[in-house]
Design a binder for these strands. Structure first.
Lengths: 226, 226
DNA sequence: TTCGTCATGTAATGGGTTACATGATTAC
DNA sequence: GTAATCATGTAACCCATTACATGACGAA
């Protein structure tokens, strides 16, 4: 038992669903792919992994052990522990994916939830997006009124800070609007049905996200090795 | 003794500098004026206040005691504790204001620091703004390269999340650019000199912030009473 | 008189980081 | 051979929240 915060657990399960990994790599993925928002340290990750194993959602396989190691790396290397999702784990993750409770659109959770929208059913996606939007709209309203009440009292910097804050929130609302709209437009369902899936993992669903795209260019470089 | 996280301490000192207040009110201010970012609970605030008192930076005056209570409220009301900044506290806050160490532009700190820019000397303001900007630029670069490295591997949602994240950061950089520019343009210094101040508190300095301004309209309403 | 909000606190708990300890592997 | 980075862990601490306990004041 022992409830971990959900967010780490969720992300770990989700990443491991795509392919088994060891802790170290997992952490990097956590802090790049998903981690624009959150950076976890080993002191958090490893204990969490242990707990997930204890719950039967993961198994650790010492790399170089059973499971057809494809030659190479047989030089008696130290026990790298590769974590693999169990059937139970998969099931559990599926359940988590299906939940769309109010906390799913809180600041901390929303990002991770969104990151796994690829495996999320369309109606849940919708609920989460709309939930988040109204969350932000409430916040916006509160900021608005509290600003109105104290405008005179506040100096220019505080005001500017407030203004910028609101603008950020407004921007996110617009983003959500786009997403929701293109989500509605998208013809496809991706199984509210919990049985008709698993043949690889989730093919091309994505109801067509709004077209954007920034500059790219390859460029091998460092890693957030805190 | 006992280092509090800095950020709460800083904010409390700063708010109390403007005028004495009791905890309850303090908390509200914390969660509106400054608190777009952070919301503190009583379980955090009250112990912190005690600690600040212990440090000699604040004194508590039981409302209805000495200090010329302007009639009214003499009906034996319960001990509301009003916190007032001591000379030492003021001095300490002044020191904190002057620091522009690297942590000053970290996510958690930057907001509060900015909120008190009104009492901050211009060169410190500059350093903090520029520090934050380069912080964000680093981050942007990292996101950029890590995105380039994994673009193919990622599904559309993850990509979109990443894109939106970067766009947000870019936006903040542009904001900082504006601020820095208008800060440079601003004719005024506001005392790097630590002796020539205190005659009331900080008059109209502000080197002219970029012109913006959203809708207002008065509208009395609720309070984030979590 | 009851409800809301003002007002002050504390103990248990949670969730996470820092700093440390350890060692293998790779690249130069 | 030595530095970087891969790799796994743990114990001590920190910051803050939750839930609780308590009570006064004002308005309906």
């Amino acid at each position: 038992m022992s409830r971990r915060s959900g967010i780490l657990e969720f992300a770990v399960l989700g990443l491991l669903r795509e392919s088994p990994m060891h802790g170290y790599e997992l952490r990097k993925r956590l802090n790049t792919s998903l981690g624009v928002f959150r950076a976890f340290s080993y002191g958090t990750l490893y204990p969490c992994l242990k707990a997930l194993v204890a719950n039967g959602w993961l198994i650790e396989e010492t790399d170089g052990a059973p499971e057809a190691v494809p030659a190479a790396a047989l030089t008696g290397r130290r026990a790298k522990i590769v974590y693999r999702l169990t059937a139970a784990g998969k099931e559990h993750f599926e359940e988590l994916l299906a939940h769309s409770g109010p906390d799913a659109w809180e600041d901390e959770h929303f990002g991770v939830r969104f990151a796994f929208f690829g495996q999320t059913s369309r109606d849940v996606r919708m609920r989460v997006l709309e939930g988040r939007r109204s969350r932000l709209e409430e916040r916006l309203e509160r900021m608005h009124t509290s600003l109105a009440r104290s405008r005179e009292r506040l100096d220019d910097y505080t005001l500017e800070l407030q203004r910028h804050g609101m603008e950020s929130v407004e921007r996110e609302v617009r983003w959500l609007n786009e997403l929701i709209e293109s989500e509605r437009a998208g013809r496809d369902q991706r199984a509210p049905d919990p049985a008709a899936q698993d043949s690889k993992h989730q093919s091309g669903d994505t109801g067509g996200l709004p077209r954007h795209r920034g500059g790219s260019r390859p460029d091998p470089s460092d890693d957030t090795t805190t």
